[in-house]
Every structure is written in structure tokens, then in C-alpha cells.
Design a binder for these strands. Sequence first.
DNA 1: TTGAACACCGAAACCGTTTTAGTTTCATAA
DNA 2: TTATGAAACTAAAACGGTTTCGGTGTTCAA
Lengths: 340, 340
Amino acid sequence: MQDVTLKQIAEILNISITTASKALKDYKDVSPKTRIAVRNLAEKLNFKPNTTALNLRNKESKTIGLLIPEIVHHFFSNVINGVIVEAEEHGYLVIVLISNDSYELEKRQVELLLDKRVDGILVSLAGSTINIDHIKQILKKEVHLVMLDKISTEINCSKIIIDDRKAAFDATEKLILSGCRKIAHFKGPDGPKTSLDRYLGYKDALEKHKLDSGLNLVYTSKNVSLEDGRQYMKQALREHPDLDAIFTITDLVAAGALQYCQENKIAVPGKISIMGFSNWFVSGLMTPSLSTVDQPGYEMGRVAFLQLLKEIELKKTKESICPETIVIPTSVVLRQSTKN
Amino acid sequence: MQDVTLKQIAEILNISITTASKALKDYKDVSPKTRIAVRNLAEKLNFKPNTTALNLRNKESKTIGLLIPEIVHHFFSNVINGVIVEAEEHGYLVIVLISNDSYELEKRQVELLLDKRVDGILVSLAGSTINIDHIKQILKKEVHLVMLDKISTEINCSKIIIDDRKAAFDATEKLILSGCRKIAHFKGPDGPKTSLDRYLGYKDALEKHKLDSGLNLVYTSKNVSLEDGRQYMKQALREHPDLDAIFTITDLVAAGALQYCQENKIAVPGKISIMGFSNWFVSGLMTPSLSTVDQPGYEMGRVAFLQLLKEIELKKTKESICPETIVIPTSVVLRQSTKN
DNA sequence: TTGAACACCGAAACCGTTTTAGTTTCATAA
DNA sequence: TTATGAAACTAAAACGGTTTCGGTGTTCAA
């Protein structure tokens, strides 16, 4: 079953393709009789304008690209979901690409999207990305770009982020307000800005409450893995037996720490409180359930798409675009792994 | 910065568009001199053929659609990942759409994909889908279709599935071999075939080992939620205090059951063994970690794409397509929630 | 009787590429 | 000198729509 074309409709009705096209688009110079005939036939044959032909003529594809580091990950799954739902709502489809945290892949995938002539691109950078010429390439081609979560300050485009520093501050302060006095931090690797900001937020809270002992209570997790969590929990407790709380770069590490405590019969939160980050799905299911910072992926995805859309539409009216940085609020989720 | 076109190249070199095109595609009727000139210029200007124009002419988009019920879900995240990675490997891009288990959305999304003229569609049905005319529509339009996991037997297309019955049998038998004698099953809702098959597999195992007591040890979970797990665990233990194992439709329900046991100081697996299904990411993190059936989403995604690709290529050579049903093997993952 | 106004329609250009079916040019064979 | 053929090139059609512009025919007022 071939697709129905305007040509076929025109032939059947013995009119020109032009007239058929106009009849369907409410042009004034088509007689009511013709208009109705065309509409009826189009309806009957289930005519759908060929999207590709339209794309070619209009130089727009109603398609955007979404490039993220991971997908099997609660936060990013939510991001994708938010983007896709909001895009669909506005008549856009989303091509999803996963860099698997590899710079090489990310670079190639940007090319794929540009070749595909998408109307815009949403990017969350791979952890290993240092050189960002490929991202600059997007702007050079005048393709709209919005970055989210893992951004680069060197790129002049709109950005959707959370305030990692404030979020970390809030989380740490909650620990302090619950009575904790000696709080360790399992931080992320040195590269990403999020790692640094969360660390700084932690420091801010300690300082505000005059708890910055001068001791080294910060451990840098290289792999940001479950195993890292266990490892550093063990090490931290050995080095500081009177530790009463930890705040981790992400829930996975917190989960590892929690496992270590349970295996070694260390009471959580009796002896030690544990605070994670991101609010993975798993956090609510563990026993005790994990207190954490909710990082609203779905909302970030939604807002990122809307910002991209705004810039796409602005461009059409030839207005100038002023990149915005939108900060999505976070909240601390208190569960059983901390006292209250 | 506008995109470079063949026309521009032709004008600069004072040749026809035709020759420029041919020079780039190794036609024999282009002089070496011209060929080199064109190639050099194309390289210099970073010429990339306009994908949309190619799509229009070749009637193929090198794009497929992937339609799934959920994304914030370990299994489906893996499916998406498998599809995307394998597709990219073969020069295809993937448009992801999420039905959110809604029949209405699914129906509309199929239309979107057909309108978009994708080369093929991968579908995992929404839970609420009963009428499948929209899926038949895909075949009617002669768009390639492969279904995975949540399939419909009424559709004549290739299918990628697991053997739910055998997987459930294996899981239940593991419980039996570990010494369990009174095993309950928390089954899924009555609609989906997977629910039924897992139930039948459970029955098979009991029968084989002559443990089918005639007692009603089967509980039907309506929402397949954490709460359901807790609920039925409570009910089952009240009705059958000597229960020594449960096998659940999915890990989430098992997690709920596990939570109930922990809150009520019921030893797992000392008093009762718990076996889930799907191997969600969370299963490995719980304490005790959950034994389960591994449902290889990534592999299923990969294979589904490859099957779709095979049919797309077969069609090009006008060969006839014979729908295949591919069963991906599963394995039981024994962790701490069962004895060994 | 002319011309203005209006209603209706369609040819053609356009988007960017590929491919068919020629055309031109030049050297060689008859 | 003329036919033959190969080499190198190109016009035009095709993919499927949209839109501009021009044309035709009718009606009505001057």
C-alpha cells in the first residue's frame, strides 16, 4: 500500500496539484465546491502530507536530538522522559543518543545529529569530555543548543541546572540540625563541576555552623560506585571512629556505605547518619531507606525542551536570542538513614 | 552559516550539479581532474549531503521508531540502550516514544511514527492495550515491525521475547531445590500474557516436584507495586503461617514483601525465601539482596534492532520476509534472599 | 464600451539530491 | 571525407509538497 500523494488526489479530481494543496490549506482562491471535494477525498484516502517533503521545503524537521551520558540511570531516565513528553506535546520528536560517558562517541554523535539536520540539540556532557570544539560546532552551524546538568561554562548557550552547591549545603545542614557533629564527605572525581560544587556546599554548611574541624574528612571517590561507598565507609570509620554522619556525591555511593554498615552491624542512623544525592529510585527501597537530595530530572528535561523550543521559535521571527541559565530547585528528602 | 550544497560547489567550479554529484560518487564518466577538483572543494567547504533531500529521493530515513510503555524502569532503560547502540552501529538513529502504558497515547504515537516515515518500528505494548488495530496499521502501510517483550500473538511479525514460563519454572525449581516446600506466588494482573506464563511456570515446577498441595497459594497483584508486595506478604503469612517461600511477578513486588518481612522481623531467607523477577538494578542493592530472574533487556533491544534491520534489508532485495520469534535465554540470579 | 473588481485556477519555481537519457567533442577507422 | 565510438559533460525529470505570480472569465459600474 503506497502512500497517497497530492498528485493522485489531483488526478482523480481532474484538478491541478496546486489547487489540491490550496484546498487543504484554506486558501481563499479555491471554490467551496472544489475545497469540499478535495477534503472529502483526502479524508477518504487518508492523505497525510509527506513529512520529508515538508522538511525539505521548510528547512525544519520538527525533530530534536538529545545527547546524554547514560540511560540506565534513574536521573537520566527521568530527563529523557521529561524531554520526550514535552516535545511530543509541542509536535516534536526526539532522537536519543547515549555517549556512554565517552568523549569520542559524543563527538561522533553530535555529527550524526548535525547531519540529520535536527532543529535543535539538548546536551548533557560526558564525564570524559574536556575538549568541547564539537559542541561549539553546533552553534557555528546555527543549530539551537541547550545544555543541561552536565554543562560547560565555556559555551554560550542556555543551560538548565540545579544549584549543586546550595543543594549540598542544605543536605549537610540537615545533618547538622539533626545533631550530627562530625560529618564526612565522599566527593566525586575532580573533573566535573558538580563534584566541586557539592563539595563546596558541604564546606559552606560546616563553616556556617563552625564545625570545620580542620580534620580531613573528605574522601574522593574515583569510580562513583557501590564498591567505593563500602571502601570509604570502612576507611573513614577506621580513621575517625567518632564519625556520626556522611554525605555522599550520589546515592549509589551512599548505598555502598549503607551496605558496609549493615554487614558490620553499625547502626544507621543510630551510630551514623547517611545522606545521599540524586534520589535514585533505589533509595526509597533500601532498608533503612536513604535520605537524599531530590534532583528533579523530569522537570529539568521538560524545562530544557521548552527553552530550546523558545529559541527555535524566536529565531523564526528573527528576534535575537539571549541565552538563559535556569536553576531548577532541589529539595532534601528525609527518610530513615538520618535522624530528625 | 548556511549549509553547503552541491549547487554552490558546481557554481564555483563552473560545472553542472550533475557532474558535481557524480564526482563525489565515483561515477566513471567524470574526468580525474574534475573529480579531484570537486572532492577537494567539498572537503574544504565541509560539504555534507542534505539528509532530508536524500530521504525524499530514496524513500528511506535511516531512522526507526521505538515505542515502549515506560522508561524510568531498569528493564526498559536497558532495552532502549541496546536498541540505540546497535542502531547507531548500523547507521540508524532512533526516535524514542513512551506510551506511559496508555493505549490512547500508544495509538497516537504510532501515527506520529508513520507520519514521520520511519523505516521501521519497534514496539513493546502498553499494559492497557487491548485493541491492536493501530499496530496492524503499521503492517498495512508496509512499514517494518518487530515487537518485543510485550507482544500480541494476533500480529504477524517478528517477536523478541523471553520464555516466561520456563524462566518462572526455573526460578520456582531453585526455591524447591533449596528446600522450600510451601511456595506462594504473587502473580500479575490477568491481562498480559507474561503474567499468565509466569504463573504457569510456577505451577509446572510445583507439579514436577509433587508440591501442588491444592491450597490456594496464589495472590493476584493488581498494581504490581511495592505496596502490593507488603500487602500480600502480610495476607499470605496470616493465611499460611508455615509458608517458606514466595515467587513474585516482578522485583518491585518482591521488594515490598521483603520490606514487610524486615519490619516484622521475619527472617529472610531463614523463615521465608523470596524470589523476584526481572533483575532490577535495585535488587542487588537491597539487604538482603534479592534473588531474581535476569531478564536481559539490553540483549533483547539489540536483537530486536538486528531483526528489524534484517527485514529492512531483505525488503530492498525484494526477498520475502518470514517473521521469526526469537527467544532470549534468561537465567536465575541467586543472591541472599534465598537459601542455597 | 471600457475597465475595474473579483473569483477561480494552474504553471512554474523551489527545497537538494540522484539518475536517465542525451549531447558535445574529439580521435580513430573506413 | 565520413561514419563510429569513446570520453566528458549536462539538461531534465523525479521525490512530494508550498507558494508566487499570472491568466482567464464573469460581473458590474462608469
